[in-house]
């Protein structure tokens, strides 16, 4: 069987421009990373769904490192660059409301501290929720304290000024 030069060129061209068509195999690579999940809520506990999220890296706080949107539960997940340590600022905004949280990320100094292979990322995960973080009971106690401060002020200024007891009156009784 004689292969025509034109047909051979056509065959090579098809293989070259559409490799996905001919590639029946698939390959998935993975890499273990540490991610940060934030949850944005309104003060009343309602999730800030579809709110706009802007992430700023510590080395460039003026320009966004990542943009995205929260999901239906107000959550947003991103993997910071482990070589950039410092405070990562995450800004969430929706209809003028929102918050800004700084997430400290420090490199563990097993290596050179600047992105070596042995470095791991330490994330301060305590304030993952972008609200005040108080329980309802704590809020109630704080509100009661605040209200009591105002009531105390009102009582102080509303007190009746006691009229001085005339000393002459008691003396006259003794004399009488």
């Amino acid at each position: 069987m004689k292969i025509q030069p034109l047909s051979f060129l056509l065959f090579c061209t098809v293989l070259g421009i559409s490799p996905k068509v001919w590639a029946h195999g698939a390959n998935i690579s993975y890499q273990q990373t540490q991610a940060i999940e934030i949850q944005a809520q309104y003060d009343g506990g309602t999730p800030m769904d579809n709110a706009q999220v802007t992430v700023y890296a510590p080395d460039d706080p003026a320009n966004p490192w990542l943009k995205g949107m929260t999901d239906a539960e107000g959550k947003f997940t991103f993997s910071p660059d482990p070589t950039v340590t410092g405070n990562w600022d995450v800004k969430v905004r929706q209809a003028g409301h929102g918050d800004l949280v700084s997430i400290p990320i420090a490199g563990n100094a097993n290596g050179d501290g600047g992105g070596g292979e042995n470095n791991t990322v330490q994330i301060a995960t305590a304030p993952t929720s972008m609200n005040s973080g108080y329980t309802p009971l704590q809020k109630a106690v704080m509100a009661a304290v605040g209200v009591w401060g105002c009531v105390g002020t009102a009582l102080f200024f509303a007190r009746r000024k006691s009229s001085p007891t005339p000393a002459v009156h008691s003396e006259s009784r003794v004399e009488g």
């Binding site: 009343g44 929706q94 009102a154």
Partner: peptide, 30 residues
Amino acid sequence: QAEIPQASLLTAAFFVSSLIHIPIPPTSIH
């Protein structure tokens, strides 16, 4: 100073009112 008591009490009401939320999408109001 005569009106400071009612000012204090209304300040308390104002202070607490922000904790009572009424959900009206896309946000909640108080």
